[in-house]
Design a protein around this nucleic acid. Structure first.
Lengths: 227, 227
DNA sequence: GCAAAAGTGTTTCATTTACACCCATGT
DNA sequence: ACATGGGTGTAAATGAAACACTTTTGC
């Protein structure tokens, strides 16, 4: 560790998750440049010598979206020798959770196309990006079992059915409606609002919001989120 | 991502955990070179352009110990701009679990001293290594709750009291002896041997070993290790 | 009035917790 | 015989799982 010996290229790649139409989606870009022009890829970029990894990840996100302070977490660092075809590049991966309704694209010149793709429809990505996506998803799954981060994916006001649906999609299981509601209401984490859906062709659902105080507590200490 | 733009120095740092005399310990080296000569540090080294991150971590371990195939897992990547005083170095951290009885030092010329230090006695480490150690420990804590990795720290044959003691030390809680035994024996994970302690000034404890088949199952699927 | 989703309690079962005494061995 | 840790079971409480019908709204 005394003399700096080798230099390596270092990138960050971000898996940006959103929840929309009952599906979990990722924000992908279609590459405009070689290698692998025309394929879908995770948003990413090289780490500049003067920025921390977290800052690099935030920069990548803000070049693409205009969302302030979204939830973001480092996932894993991929360092296979041949993961990138043009030379050795190590990738530090992050995932971010965004309220998809807040989302606004800021297209940049390098990018041909940007889209929210449902995870179920993502077949192939450039390089090892599919593997990075899988790892981010499994990290999210683990995280969501014990910390209330799933809420970052919902709008400010949401119904209990939306919330249940979100957990079902992330965890890949079906949950019992009554047990789910019992558990969540018992956690004192959400607050019932005086507002309901309008214009729906069935009984209107109540909206809820999070109690930010309790949210912070649960986020720090974790819980046993067995539903 | 198309042209490789910036180069960064990249190191791996390893937190090597061992369990001995009822304590959790880490294998540290005393630096012989500047900067911070004479201070304790995590074993680490620069990542060579031709090796994967995992290989770099294994190389660091094998330069120090002669243990084949120990349990190893990536923890986190530290990329603060000023974490290393002589220039920008990003550190990918790993933790390893070793059966301390197997351990044999292979001193190298650069190292002044190598020692197993109990975590409770580790006050200060070079650079941000203390932070890396903390992160590795909290990752281990999380891991051990749902996967049977703690067993990697024990010798082939162990007593239930040793096992309980290990969990108590890692998790930082006291466990009930009867409940602990009930749970573990019910998991079908350990096998009672026909061998007991000898020469102890009290009733001799039975030795147990792991069932490697079940061990692999539990390792893959995880469990809810609420003790 | 019909379709579609919202909302609501109770019982059963499994898991977790709390708890205290006798046993084997070396000195 | 005494000190030291090994080994064992039961009851109470908590948490999870299973389960079906009524309500509200738009068409």
């Amino acid at each position: 560790m005394s003399e700096i010996k080798y230099l390596n290229a270092l990138s960050v790649d971000c898996v940006i998750f959103g929840f929309d139409e009952g599906e979990l989606k990722a924000l992908l870009i279609k590459r405009k440049e070689e290698p692998s022009s025309g394929m879908w890829a995770l948003p990413g970029g090289f780490v500049e010598p003067t920025e921390s990894l977290d800052n690099a990840a935030m920069r990548v996100l803000s070049e693409l979206t205009s969302i302030p302070d979204m939830y973001m977490e480092q996932v894993y660092t991929f360092g296979g020798v041949n993961r990138y075809p043009l030379g050795r590049v190590i990738s530090v991966s992050y995932y971010a959770l965004v309220k998809i309704s807040d989302y606004k694209i800021q297209a940049t010149s390098k990018i041909e196309d940007v889209a929210w793709l449902p995870l179920s429809e993502i077949k192939e990505l450039v390089f090892d990006h599919k593997e990075i996506l899988q790892k981010a998803l499994s990290t999210l799954k683990e995280r969501v079992k014990f910390h209330p981060v799933g809420f970052e994916l919902l709008p400010e006001k949401f119904t209990l059915t939306q919330l249940q649906n979100l957990y079902e999609v992330i965890l890949g299981v079906l949950l019992d409606k009554r047990n789910f509601r019992k558990k969540l209401l018992g956690m004192d984490l959400i607050i019932k609002l005086d507002e309901s859906q309008i214009g729906v062709a069935h009984r209107a659902a109540r909206f809820f919001k999070f109690d930010p105080e309790r949210y912070k507590e649960w986020l720090a200490q974790g819980f046993n989120f067995k539903l």
